[in-house]
């Protein structure tokens, strides 16, 4: 069992390494993708600096908390899209029959599929997240927590994407719904939860779980709460279990395809 896990991890990292090798073939594009993503994300900080010049706080969020939220959201996005890029394009993989290549391999189908590509600009998001965190203020415990939540948040983001994209096993064009949910997750993740009320807030802690992935971690990093920490980890694990159940349930309905395709 342990050997199987070790071998699976080895293949995942090899897959990421090869995808990175492909991107590095064109150094200029690679570097510009990363740098422009850092610059693009910096505009969010400027926006909030202007807003905080008008008001001192937004709900219970001061400037420092907002900066932490933006940094964490950027890291979460970067982690999810760098390591699991294909989870955001899973419908296409299912609809065009490209899952075949992963099914015939003696590895976990879902993990092999979603880790088979990277998004280079996500490295820019990860870098930006690190810079913003250092700007927020380094301490060893908060640094550890920051990256634990980067992973749990990233995994939740990936799970939501896989769950909605897996609906492609049942419906045509499920990718539209999945993309909408993914975009909503990203769009609201850089705004403090205190500005959302009622049904929207409920949504943010359930179907679009930005609350669990982003807001709760900011609260824990600023003031550690073991209860919230356990909730965050447990919900992340729950999402992983649900994701695997739904994907493998759908896989039984997989109809493959004979479309010509290449692995690029």
């Amino acid at each position: 069992m342990l050997m199987a896990v070790r071998n699976q991890i080895k293949v995942i990292f090899l897959s990421i390494k090869y995808a990175l090798m492909r991107e590095l073939l064109n150094k200029t594009t690679f570097l510009s993708n990363v740098i422009f993503m850092v610059l693009n994300n910096s505009s969010m900080i400027i926006q909030w600096l202007i807003l905080f010049s008008i008001r001192d706080n937004f709900g219970d969020y001061g400037l420092k908390q907002v900066i932490l939220l933006i940094g964490l959201s950027s890291s979460i996005y970067g982690f999810a899209h760098f390591f699991f890029e294909k989870s955001f394009k899973l419908s296409e993989t299912i609809n065009t029959g490209k899952l075949d290549a992963y099914i015939v391999q003696p590895k976990n189908i879902l993990l092999s599929t979603i880790t088979s590509d990277i998004q280079v600009s996500a490295l820019g998001d990860l870098l930006f997240g690190l810079i913003v965190y250092l700007f927020y203020g380094f301490s060893f415990p908060s640094f550890i927590l920051y990256y634990i939540f980067t992973m749990t948040g990233g995994l939740i983001l990936v799970c939501i994407s896989v769950i909605f994209h897996s609906l492609s096993f049942w419906f045509n064009n499920a990718d539209l719904g999945a993309d909408t949910i993914n975009n909503m997750m990203i769009n609201v993740s850089t705004y403090p939860d205190s500005i959302f009320k009622g049904a929207v807030k409920w949504l943010l802690f359930t179907i679009i779980p930005v609350g669990i992935a982003n807001y709760i971690p900011v609260k824990i990093i600023t003031s550690f709460n073991p209860y919230l920490f356990i909730i965050n980890i447990s919900v992340c694990l729950l999402f992983i279990v649900i994701t695997f159940i739904i994907f493998y349930k759908g896989l039984r309905r997989y109809s493959s395809s004979n479309l010509m395709s290449a692995r690029i």
Binding site: M21, R22, L259, M260
Partner: peptide, 10 residues
């Protein structure tokens, strides 16, 4: 024959 399993850039 109709599907590539190889990474084309490698």
């Amino acid at each position: 024959g109709q599907k590539e399993q190889l990474w084309t850039h490698l």
